[in-house]
């Protein structure tokens, strides 16, 4: 007797978020990215699958990264001090569909660059590349509240994705994104209750729920990734069952987490048995990425071009199976 597959019918669909505005839409982007829209758990093509494929954003810093291992700096060594050129290289050479600018240099401990300087960096990247842009603060709440509104204004109408709004610091960024037509990232520390709460707080300010992407935060492979997986899975299940306050696409900071792991950044001289770091690091990043893809990630923020290439291939293969 032929077996019939049991197909789940869900009552709700994940929101669709579009990043980047073209000329016709009042921006200057030459392409835009649409993510989300899943009517089922990820890659269950029989139940609706993935109407929009997950995308990879390559990470660019506004200052030369001090704490990146040599193997990670190597591919960008000619452009590390010039964010616009760095972004251009990611797009031209490594085929990035999306750039994620992290304004690390504005942090009081990492250079304390001014809001105006940050805004001009944003502008220079928007001029240098045509792909949509994600802009992140430095993680210092006080400074981000000065820097991000300026950057938001500088990118007005470009429909960027700005981050991160947190439970304790969401008002300024939400107001800026609302005024300048951007999407926003809501961040929560591996905590589904806070993830939901941040979305409510943002939406209470009149912000459209369908312009929110959630960062439920992850760990690298070997560093609590299973907790991140559970949170994402639980959020997705709740969303598909009808919880509009959790029906957002996921963004995952894969590069940031993977390159903190000693398995990625540990030197060959210290761990000869682990093999060449130029392979090991990207593999650690790529494996972390694939795992979060399987838990439903929609946007991956990544660093090493080799890892990006591997994961791009995996995404293509996963999607083709449908």
């Amino acid at each position: 007797m032929p077996m019939e597959l049991v197909k789940e019918k869900w009552s709700n669909t994940i929101n669709t978020v579009t990043i980047g505005a073209t000329k016709e839409e009042g921006g200057t982007r030459t392409s835009k990215i649409t993510v989300g829209g899943e009517p089922s758990l990820p890659y269950l093509f029989g139940e609706g699958g993935m109407p929009n494929k997950p995308v990879i954003a390559m990470e660019v810093l506004d200052v030369e990264p001090k704490d990146w291992p040599q193997v990670l700096k190597e591919p960008f060594k000619d452009v590390l001090s010039n964010p616009a050129q760095w972004a251009k290289k990611c797009v031209d050479q490594y085929k990035a569909e999306l750039i994620c600018l992290r304004l690390q240099g504005t942090h009081p401990d990492f250079g304390n660059l001014s809001a105006d300087k940050a805004a001009s960096t944003v502008k220079s990247i928007l001029d240098a590349v045509g792909v949509p842009l994600i802009v992140l603060g430095s993680g210092n709440d006080e400074k981000d509240s000065l820097v991000l509104p300026k950057c938001s204004e500088a990118a007005k109408g470009q429909r960027c994705l700005f981050g991160d709004a947190t439970e304790d610091n969401y008002k300024t960024l939400t107001a800026s994104c609302l005024a300048d037509g951007h999407n926003i990232i809501g961040e929560s520390p591996i905590d589904i209750n806070i993830a939901k709460q941040v979305n409510i707080l943002i939406s209470d300010m009149g912000f459209d729920l369908t312009k929110i992407v959630i960062n439920t935060t992850i760990g690298a492979l070997g560093y609590g990734l299973e907790y991140a997986y559970s949170i994402m899975e639980r959020a997705r299940l709740a969303a598909l069952l009808g919880d509009k306050m959790l029906s957002m696409p996921f963004v995952c900071f894969v590069g940031q987490e993977a390159w903190r792991a000693k398995e990625a950044k540990g030197l060959e001289s210290e761990h000869p048995e682990w093999g060449p770091q130029a392979q090991r690091g990207p593999i650690w990043e790529a494996t972390t990425a694939v795992l979060v893809l399987l838990s439903g990630a929609d946007i991956l923020i990544m660093r090493h071009p080799k890892a990006v290439e591997m994961v791009r291939g995996t995404i293509e293969r996963l999607i083709k199976k449908g």
Binding site: I194, S203, L246
Partner: peptide, 12 residues
């Protein structure tokens, strides 16, 4: 799913 504003969340 619980969140601090669970009454609001449910009403929305």
């Amino acid at each position: 799913i619980y969140c601090a504003s669970f009454l609001d969340a449910r009403r929305k």
